[in-house]
């Protein structure tokens, strides 16, 4: 089938998509955007989290056809050129990145959280990120990163 959708602000027209493919597969293997990761492919780990029409979803659970005509924003679409998004910079500065495989999904999830709640307390952060597995960090520095990102966003705003 032919699939047309908007990805990171640009229209993508993809041909020969097999109906059984997920949005994650199409992004990674057909659209040249492998940033969203394939760690469980059943919606448990959050590594493939992307925005679909502004709402965070596990791209592995979205059939490619369901994305037709819709707006997708991936981790590759967060930075403004060379300038990292505040959340990306905070993950780097706080040492929240080890192997980094969970990082794209966590960054999208944390980005979404801060859009909704600019000053979350720790319990809120834990609840919001509980669908994203990380095996390297024990999450301590991920919490640090979200706190740092929230603080920096507040600075920018004030």
């Amino acid at each position: 089938m032919r699939l047309t959708m908007t990805v990171n602000g640009a229209e993508q027209v993809l041909d020969d998509v097999w109906e059984g493919e997920s949005l994650l597969y199409v992004l990674r293997e057909r659209a040249g955007l492998p940033g969203s990761k394939n760690a469980c492919e059943q919606g448990e780990c959050g590594s493939c989290t992307v925005y679909l029409d502004g709402a965070p979803v596990c791209a592995c659970l979205v059939a490619a056809g369901q994305a037709a005509g819709r707006d997708v924003r991936t981790v590759e679409g967060l930075a403004d050129g060379d300038e990292l998004d505040v959340v990306q910079q905070a993950f780097l500065s706080a040492g929240a990145v080890q192997c980094g495989f969970c990082t794209p999904g966590l960054i999208v999830a944390a980005h979404d959280l801060l859009e909704r709640d600019p000053a979350p307390d720790d319990a809120t952060v834990r609840e919001a990120l509980s669908g994203n597995l990380c095996r390297c960090t024990g999450y301590e520095k991920i919490l640090d990163a979200v706190r740092l990102a929230a603080a920096r966003r507040a600075e920018v705003r004030s």
Binding site: L33, G35, S36, V75, L78, A79, L84, Q88, G100, T103
Partner: peptide, 9 residues
């Protein structure tokens, strides 16, 4: 490798 990792690249 941190910048590449946070950018998904």
């Amino acid at each position: 490798d941190g910048i590449l990792k946070v950018r998904g690249e």
